[in-house]
Design a protein around this nucleic acid. Structure first.
Lengths: 211, 211
DNA sequence: TTGGCGATCGAACGATCGTCCGAAACGCCC
DNA sequence: GGGCGTTTCGGACGATCGTTCGATCGCCAA
């Protein structure tokens, strides 16, 4: 391919290959030696590009999250209709999610693996993105709607859970999936609650474990 | 408390304490030494109750999943109305989830950590539970509804994602949360699609990373 | 040709991990 | 009180981990 890849291109290649390994084996079970083999670089050669395994995970998550949020803001600039903004948000998230499954799985699944300043930066990114999502949803919130925080994370759950079950050969692709999830969420969120929220019909106290 | 705990009671205590440690630090980052300390048993003393760390994880997942599914079937025996069966399913799942957060986080988050026969047994349990859920949803599926497989996992996503964001002091409790999620999902799933599914308004091909 | 610098590598180190072994302590029945 | 099965423990072993160090390679400028 590229006969003379630059330093940055090589780093991006390492990030991509590492994300695939992390997604496949999990961050902790994947050894630096696994990653070296997947990238075609020697074990110690990796440390020329990255100063630690944790920084490697951070770079994957930071780069992935930055791109996801950046693309969303680019798209939203020219969309003012509140309902359409929700649709654009869901479609952007799912398209990116399915086109970068390895990175997004690592981002969703290995959130607790970082510590210190690494963890804080990713946490800031996450909060910023979640706040943007919540504000988008509040743009269409009817009176008496479900709490916007609950609704936001319910929507994130629908979308971020996908990596655990989606199979390319039997399940809808990104755009069809966006339609389905937009349909499910939007009609649920926009439908007003019944006149009085019904109490729990089964009043038994929740005893927990099987006796 | 119990002055003379039996073997089984001690094992359950070990499972409970281990689940808390696994949920907090993650399966791989939690060492057997951490678990020994949390259980109050010595390092080698653990191996009198459990033959390996992997079996410990398996016992937690198997016991938790078995109880969850067992309780669901008990409740469903006396419920025939299709809509009410969906409500009972969601309420049972969420009540159990929030009452056993540590175990359910381990079950949701450490699915790939098992191997061999351990992994296969948990996979069978998971498939069985998911099939039950899908059949419950198919009981209320209107014509032209979202594919039941997609709807099932979207619902699971809403529910199983909770451990990543739910905070007891600001978010609704189990029963209120069940109401919200039942409302969101049911109205989404039961609402018929518009006469023709609208095409994607933004026809741009999804280029992936920031240039 | 040579000097120098970016890039790469093999080999090793210390730490931590899961697991195992032999002995000691405990509780119960004859 | 003596003997025996159950339960518990300290200490160690081998494997694997992330990381480091010093040497070497390749390429361009002088």
């Amino acid at each position: 391919m590229d006969p003379r890849p630059s330093y940055d291109e090589k780093l991006l290649g390492i990030l991509r290959a590492s994300a695939a390994v992390f997604a496949d084996k999990g961050y902790d079970r994947a050894s630096i030696r696994d990653i070296a083999q997947a990238t075609g670089v020697s074990l110690s050669g990796l440390y020329y590009y990255v100063s630690s395994k944790e920084e490697l995970l951070f770079l994957i998550q930071d780069h992935c999250f930055g791109t996801l949020h950046h693309r969303l803001e680019e798209l939203l600039v020219e969309v003012t209709d509140p309902g359409e903004r929700v649709r654009v948000f869901i479609r952007n998230h799912l398209r990116f999610f399915l086109a970068n499954q390895a990175e997004m799985k690592v981002l969703s699944h290995e959130a607790d693996a970082l510590s210190g300043e690494f963890a804080e930066q990713i946490l800031r990114r996450k909060r910023s993105y979640a706040r943007a999502a919540q504000e988008i949803l509040e743009g269409i919130a009817p009176p008496d709607a479900v709490e916007s925080r609950t609704a936001t994370f319910a929507l994130f759950g629908m979308m971020n859970w996908i990596y655990t079950w989606h199979r390319e050969d039997v399940d809808p692709g990104a755009d069809a999936l966006s339609e389905r999830i937009t349909h499910l969420f939007l009609n649920g969120y926009l439908t007003p609650p019944p006149p009085e929220r019904p109490g729990v019909t089964d009043g038994s106290a929740p005893s927990i474990w099987r006796s």
